[in-house]
Simulated scan of single mutants.
Amino acid sequence: MDTPKNTVSYSYEIKVEEDHIDNLRHVNNVVYLQWVNDISEKHWNVLAINGLKEKYFWVVLRHELDYHNEAFLGDTLRLTTWVGISKGVKSVRYVEIFKEDKLLLKAASTWCLIDAKTLRPTRIKNDILEVLEFE
């Protein structure tokens, strides 16, 4: 999975808790997907300045997750996301999850921009693209 970094990234750390663990005693795959959604939403909330959240929202069209290693109870994980190609109504968002220097997960998700008033897909314009550029 190619993951170009051409936009502002966003990161935070989480600690693996008991409710993240499955019957194999490691983080459940569905939990990773939830984390991908969570960091995507948090990043948009950071980026969505000047009323963008009131004008637009995103819906996911596709997730692609590649699992590389496991995480266990008590592990501290670093989640990082950034947005790749954004054109038309679609944008690709990338997420990586690491435990120290060990890659656990790479994800690419395709999102569609929705106009909050019409509830219809809308083209990604400069007001969105400007907040995605390097700082």
Score class of each variant (00 low, 15 high):
Glu17Asp: 11
Arg62Asp: 13
Leu77His: 07
Pro121Asp: 02
Leu52Glu: 13
Val8Phe: 12
Lys90Glu: 02
Asn37Leu: 04
Gln34Thr: 10
Tyr10Lys: 07
Thr122Leu: 01
Val60Met: 05
Thr118Met: 07
Arg120Met: 13
Val31Thr: 15
Val30Gln: 12
Val59Tyr: 02
Asp19His: 15
Ala116His: 10
Lys102Thr: 15
Lys53Asn: 04
Arg123Asn: 06
Leu33Lys: 01
Ser9Asp: 09
Gly74Tyr: 10
Met1Gln: 03
Thr3Lys: 09
Leu73Thr: 00
Asp101Lys: 10
Glu54Tyr: 03
Thr80Lys: 15
Thr76Ser: 03
Leu104His: 08
Asp2Thr: 08
Phe134Asn: 03
Glu13Phe: 03
Arg93Glu: 02
Thr3Phe: 13
His20Ala: 12
Tyr67Gly: 00
Lys125Leu: 01
Tyr32Asn: 01
Val60Pro: 01
Val46Gln: 13
Ile85Gln: 10
Lys15His: 11
Tyr32Ser: 11
Leu65Glu: 06
Leu104Ile: 04
Cys112Tyr: 10
Val30Trp: 11
Ile39Trp: 08
Asn69Phe: 02
Arg120Ile: 07
Gly88Glu: 02
Glu54Ser: 15
Cys112Leu: 09
Val36Phe: 10
Val89Phe: 07
Lys87Arg: 08
Ala71Tyr: 05
Asn6Ile: 15
Met1Glu: 00
Ile128Ala: 04
Lys90Val: 05
Asp38Tyr: 01
Glu64Ile: 05
Leu73Trp: 09
Trp111Tyr: 13
Lys125Val: 02
Pro4Ser: 11
Arg78Cys: 11
Asp22Cys: 06
Asn23Pro: 02
Val46Ser: 14
Lys99Ser: 09
Gly88Asn: 12
Trp58Cys: 11
Val31Phe: 10
Leu113Ser: 06
Ala48Gln: 14
Val27Phe: 14
Ile85Ser: 13
Thr118Gly: 13
Ile97Asn: 06
Glu96Lys: 12
Ser40Val: 03
Phe98His: 14
Ile97Ala: 08
Asn69Asp: 04
Thr7Tyr: 05
Arg123Ala: 09
Glu17Asn: 14
Asp22Ser: 04
Trp82Leu: 04
Lys87Phe: 12
Met1Ile: 03
Leu105Cys: 01
Val59Thr: 03
Gly51Lys: 05
Lys117Gly: 01
Ser86Tyr: 09
Thr3Arg: 13
Lys87Gly: 12
Glu135Gln: 12
Glu18Asn: 06
Tyr12Val: 08
Ile39Pro: 04
Val27Pro: 10
Phe72Gly: 00
Ala107Gly: 00
Trp58Asp: 12
Arg120Gly: 08
His63Glu: 08
Asn29Trp: 06
Lys42Met: 09
Lys106Thr: 02
Ser11His: 10
Val36Thr: 09
Thr110Lys: 03
Thr7Met: 01
Glu130Pro: 06
Asn37Tyr: 02
Phe134Ala: 02
Lys102Gln: 15
Val36Ala: 02
Arg62Thr: 07
Asp101Leu: 13
Phe72Lys: 05
Asn126Pro: 09
Lys106Ser: 02
Ser109Ile: 11
Asn23Val: 11
Leu129Met: 09
Lys117Met: 03
Ile39Val: 03
Ala116Asn: 08
Asp75Trp: 10
Ser86His: 05
Ala107Arg: 01
Lys55Phe: 03
Asn69His: 08
Lys125Phe: 01
Ile49His: 06
Tyr94Phe: 12
Phe134Ser: 09
Ser40His: 12
Lys5Tyr: 11
Glu18Tyr: 06
